[in-house]
């Protein structure tokens, strides 16, 4: 748990650009919402190819996957209810690529739509929040006892060294 907090604080306080963190959160959320499959691999490829903050992406991905254990069932029901459009079903039936991405699977389709809708707003909001954090809060957080302890810990020294 402490390492997780340390990781987040480390990234927030690092030199990484707010956009890199924002996109990492948005894509981590997207990957976490989706059931593991080709779409997830595509997102991972994007994250690897662009300078998106990897630690943030992995943490958010893990957290969202955990959350989906609770949310998958309602999301599947909701998708089943609203996805029964002839045009959509015909498109999915005729395009094998979409089927390869498992978009004809009820949960995957719902998760994809949810992730896609949230992608830009989450990226922008995260970027804005990181900026605000750095301007208003970072200085005081640096003085917190927990931060001092973290900085003194061996683990943190290891992080510092690796970066």
């Amino acid at each position: 748990m402490l390492t997780l907090v340390a990781k987040i604080l480390k990234v927030l306080n690092s030199e990484a650009s707010p956009w890199q963190i924002g996109w990492a959160i948005a894509l981590g959320l997207f990957a976490g919402v989706l059931p593991f499959g080709l779409l997830t691999l595509l997102i991972i490829l994007i994250v690897c190819l662009l300078t998106i903050n990897l630690s943030t992406f992995i943490v958010v991905w893990g957290l969202t996957s955990g959350l989906m254990l609770l949310l998958a069932d309602p999301l599947e029901r909701l998708t089943w209810q609203y996805a029964q459009h002839d045009n959509l079903l015909a498109l999915l039936a005729n395009t094998e690529t979409l089927q390869l991405l498992h978009l004809h699977h009820t949960l995957t389709l719902g998760a994809f739509v949810l992730g896609a809708v949230l992608l830009l707003p989450v990226a922008w909001l995260s970027k804005a929040l990181v900026l605000q954090y750095r301007v208003r809060i970072m200085a005081s957080v640096q003085k917190w006892k927990i931060m001092q302890m973290l900085k003194a810990s061996k683990l943190f020294a290891l992080y510092e060294k690796l970066n």
């Binding site: 029964q84 999915l92 089927q99 699977h105 009820t106 949960l107």
Partner: peptide, 13 residues
């Protein structure tokens, strides 16, 4: 109706 794992495609392969 309980949701099926796969949507009812018109020409399911």
């Amino acid at each position: 109706v309980l949701p099926n794992r796969i949507l009812p495609l018109p020409g399911q392969p």
